[in-house]
Design a protein around this nucleic acid. Structure first.
Lengths: 142, 142
DNA sequence: TTAGGTGCAAAACCTTTGCCATCCC
DNA sequence: GGGATGGCAAAGGTTTTGCACCTAA
C-alpha cells in the first residue's frame, strides 16, 4: 500500500540544505542552492521532494493558510481553527493573550504588532466522516 | 500624499457580503456572491477592493498574501516571527503551550492536533531602515 | 473636472503534472 | 526487472496588471 521512498542525491541535498539553515527558504530559494551542486536539477524535482519530505515528517511547510487567500471582516483579534480534512476555517472564542506580544518584543528587540494563532485538526463533521477517500487524504496516503 | 478611497457599489457589496458571514470565503467565493447583485463585476475588481479594504483595516486576510510556501527542517513545534517589511521569518524560543490544544478541543469538540503561532511586526534591521520606499510599503501607502 | 475605480483580458506567479528516460532496491 | 524518481516543459490555479472607459467627489 504505502509507497517505498527512495533516497536520491537530489532529495538528500534538499534536506541537507534545509537542515543547514534557519532562514525558512522558499522552494525557489532552495532550488538556487541545490543547483550549485546538481546544476541540472529541475524546479519540479525540488517541489516533488519537498512534498515527500513533508509527508515523511522531515520538514514543515510554513503557512497559516492553504493555497488561496481567505478573508475575514472580523478585524478584532481572534483565533482560528482549520480543519485539515475539509479545509473549513472556524472562529474560536478563545481569549486573546495580549501579554505574549510584549514578552516576545522584550526578548527579541523586534517590534511586535500582532500575533496569529491557528489550531489544526479535525472538525466535528469530519470526525464522523467514514469516507475512505477522505481518510486516505487525511492520513496523507495519497 | 495618501490616496483618497472612494466608495463604490462594488466595494460596498464586497464588504457587506464579508460582514454577513463567518465562513472566511476566498476571493473567488466572494466573486460568485457579488455577481448575484452586480452580474458584470470582474474578478480583478474583487481582488482590488479586497486589497483596499485590507489597507483600510476593514478586513483581514488570513494568509500569506501573494506569498509562497516556506520550508523548515526544524520539525519540533516552535513559533515564528514574520517581519512585515522585509518578509524574513525568524524562529522564536518562546515555550510552546501544550495545554491550549486540549482547552480548545474541550470547548469545540474538534480534534486538535497542533497549533501554529506567528508574531508579526518589524525586525531589528527594518526598525533601523530609513528607506522612504520601505517605510511607504510598511505603512501601506503604496 | 479629474483622480480613482471598473471591466476585460492578458500576463505574472507559484506549483503541479505528463511524459519518458534514468536510477535504485 | 520494475517501480520510483528525475528532467523538461507545458498546464493549472490564483492573483496582478495594462488599458480604455466610467464615475464619485
Amino acid at each position: 500500500m504505502s509507497t517505498v521512498h527512495r533516497n536520491t542525491k537530489q532529495k538528500e541535498a534538499i534536506l541537507r540544505i534545509l537542515k543547514g539553515t534557519t532562514s525558512h527558504p522558499t522552494a525557489d530559494c532552495i532550488y538556487e542552492q541545490v543547483r550549485r551542486e546538481i546544476p541540472n536539477i529541475s524546479l519540479g524535482t525540488v517541489y516533488r521532494n519537498l512534498r515527500l519530505l513533508k509527508q515523511e515528517g522531515n520538514i514543515l511547510e510554513l503557512s497559516l493558510a492553504g493555497s488561496f487567500s481567505r478573508f475575514d471582516a472580523n478585524t478584532k483579534n481572534h483565533y482560528h481553527f482549520r480543519c485539515e480534512l475539509c479545509g473549513r476555517i472556524f472562529d474560536l472564542d478563545e481569549p486573546v493573550d495580549k501579554e505574549i506580544d510584549k514578552r516576545v518584543a522584550r526578548k527579541t528587540g523586534f517590534t511586535v504588532t500582532q500575533h496569529r494563532l491557528e489550531f489544526r485538526g479535525l472538525c466535528i463533521d469530519c470526525q464522523r466522516s467514514d469516507s475512505p477517500e477522505s481518510l486516505k487524504k487525511y492520513l496523507g496516503l495519497t
